[in-house]
């Protein structure tokens, strides 16, 4: 069957809903981590809750992710000024910093592992299990951020962004800042709850 439609509110206009979609999605991610960190608080009241010292690697990673937020934002600013090449450079730095972040997270966890602080198994404790799980879950969310960063970088290289068409970048950027804030929160929270 065929229909002729004149759109006074076109389907295309649904695009304006993309940014709110992200924000509400972020709310549900926040609730997810709120559930988990509340669980940490409840579990920490147990008599068997164990403290350990956090490897300095996690401080390095925190610095890396905060810096990456700054460089991504700067790249966005230059992109809007139509200075593609500087933007691409900044996106590349962002990418490097985020890979550095992942590396430091990995180094930190393996350091814990070498100290005999395990994620699972009979020698693990609830505090160490939480620590591993929260760290890895954050990286899992970062993974999608990385994909969107790559996507934005490639589109920039192909010169696909012109005026008024930055929605995709803005969404990716907002998510990226969110990831940074989320990690800083987790880092501070876990330090307070778990470190000696």
């Amino acid at each position: 069957m065929e229909h002729q439609l004149t759109y006074s509110t076109s389907f295309e206009e649904n695009k304006k809903a993309h940014e709110p979609l992200l924000w509400i999605g972020l709310v549900s991610i926040i609730m997810f981590f709120a559930g988990l960190t509340s669980a940490v608080i409840v579990s920490s009241t147990s008599a068997t809750w164990q403290l350990f010292s956090l490897p300095s690697s996690f401080l390095n990673s925190s610095i890396a992710i905060v810096l990456s937020s700054v460089t991504y934002q700067a790249g966005y600013v230059f992109l809007k000024k139509q200075q593609q090449s500087i933007a691409i450079l900044l996106f590349a730095i962002t990418l490097t910093l985020s890979l550095l972040f992942v590396y430091f997270q990995y180094a930190g966890l393996s350091n814990l592992y070498q100290q005999g602080i395990f994620a699972t198994g009979s020698q693990s404790t609830t505090s160490s299990s939480y620590f591993y799980i929260l760290t890895v879950l954050h990286i899992a969310h970062l993974f999608f951020g990385l994909i969107s960063l790559l996507y934005v970088s490639i589109k920039t290289m192909l010169n696909k962004y012109n005026n008024n068409n930055y929605l995709g970048v803005k969404i990716s950027l907002t998510y990226w800042h969110f990831l940074g804030i989320l990690w800083v929160y987790l880092y501070v929270f876990l330090s307070v709850m778990m470190s000696k």
């Binding site: 549900s28 994620a119 609830t126």
Partner: peptide, 27 residues
Amino acid sequence: VLSFPVLLSAVLLLVFDRSFGTSFYLS
């Protein structure tokens, strides 16, 4: 949106207890 993610977090910890040897809910 506010409550289902919390159930998801509960289920996740449960899966770890079941299959990966953690003890979030066990004592």
